[in-house]
Design a binder for these strands. Structure first.
Lengths: 215, 215
DNA sequence: GTCCGTAACTTTACGGTCGTTACTTTACGG
DNA sequence: CCGTAAAGTAACGACCGTAAAGTTACGGAC
């Protein structure tokens, strides 16, 4: 009753020949779901993933060398998701929006991803096997570059920033991260609306020229 | 050889009568060390704590109801440490320092605690059993209040802030937290010095009147 | 000094989970 | 009909939390 690996799911159908690799995707999805539910990679066991996928535990080894390889495969996907979400958020602001508006939109999308996928977000940036391990660095660096570019555009448009665009982007990124993590971990805190925190932050760090007064 | 709980330590001396509660402190210290080394509360087992303390695993139950009670006891202590560190940082700035300088000093001390005790810091604010659980809320709220007061003092001294002191304190706290967590998790990132991130942040959010020009 | 109650621990054990390896079975497709 | 891809079964050693019962030795009473 308890150590029976086939207890949880209806015992999935075997893949046709040549399609065996489909199990790989199903395992990644199952692992991803478990990480999201658990909010952490520790405690997401190979056996639990296999149960979720309706498969025996050793079958995981047909597609992944070990547990770490499975977890890493999930993180690579979710990192790409985060990058895509930020890009979509910026594009949704419209190409004719001001650089500052596009910056706000990108930051907003970042926070929204984190709050909408708290379990994944925590694992993405909360473990030492994090974004700047060799396997993850490209996706993370890409997201940060979006931020650097967004700030540089504001500077080109006349904004005063305190440091290089990379320095300011690092400050902003840290702040976004802190806000997401704390909101996720401590939802009972009386948080102000996201905008009430995001706009003062960005206005303080990226000071656009005031168009309503001569400057 | 493997399931022998007494392998790791020299088998501590029994406490004298009436001093049995001393084991409690030793267990908390051992658990605290393990959490710091592991950087997480999961994976810090009762058995490992008992080994570290030179004691059998069931002895833990003489002083703690279960594993959670032991972990909580550690977190309560470390939360108090963090609060003390911030207070000391502020006081070290001197009573005649400007409100802004004292604010900077407090934030600096907060970051320094996190960077100096990465394993503990991650557990303090990185788990859902976090600062705003009933047992922890007082210590965490106290630290946040220090920040609110520091910002209010700056406002009284003429600073312009974007929102209520509590709102701004929440922004600052989130940013400090994000910076600590990211620095701890991704030490290989080319981080600017702490001051290069902290000062632009605080100057952007708490705009002191410029004493070098007429206002 | 010796005795003994009891505080301070230990030993043992149960039932469970885990990662992983070695080997075996099933069933698709040529 | 049979080779082989796609799985499954069984098992190893390790670790876990915790309950139950046993043991050791301190310190006060006589």
């Amino acid at each position: 009753m308890s150590s029976d690996e086939s207890a949880a799911r209806p015992r999935r159908r075997r893949n046709p020949r040549g399609e065996g690799a489909r199990l790989r995707d199903e395992l990644v999805e199952a692992a991803s779901d478990l990480i999201a539910e658990h909010g952490s990679a520790e405690g997401v066991s190979i056996r639990a993933v296999a149960r979720r996928a309706g498969v025996s535990a050793p079958s995981v080894y047909l597609h992944f060398d070990d547990r770490d390889a499975l977890i890493s495969a999930v993180l690579v996907q979710r990192f790409a998701d985060l990058g895509d979400a930020v890009v979509e958020g910026i594009e949704a602001a419209g190409g004719d929006a001001s650089p500052f508006s596009r910056l706000v939109a990108g930051c907003h999308a970042y926070i929204a991803y984190g709050l909408g996928n708290p379990g994944h977000y925590r694992v993405l940036f909360g473990t030492p096997v994090g974004p700047f391990s060799p396997t993850m660095s490209s996706a993370a660096a890409e997201s940060l570059n979006l931020l650097v570019e967004g700030i540089a555009r504001c500077e080109e448009a006349g904004a005063a920033i305190a440091g290089t665009p990379l320095d300011v982007a690092t400050i902003v990124w840290s702040s976004l991260h802190g806000q997401v993590m704390l909101r996720v971990v401590s939802p009972s805190f009386p948080w102000p609306p996201v905008d009430a925190m995001l706009l003062p932050l960005l206005r303080g760090l990226v000071r656009m020229p005031d168009v309503t007064a001569g400057g």
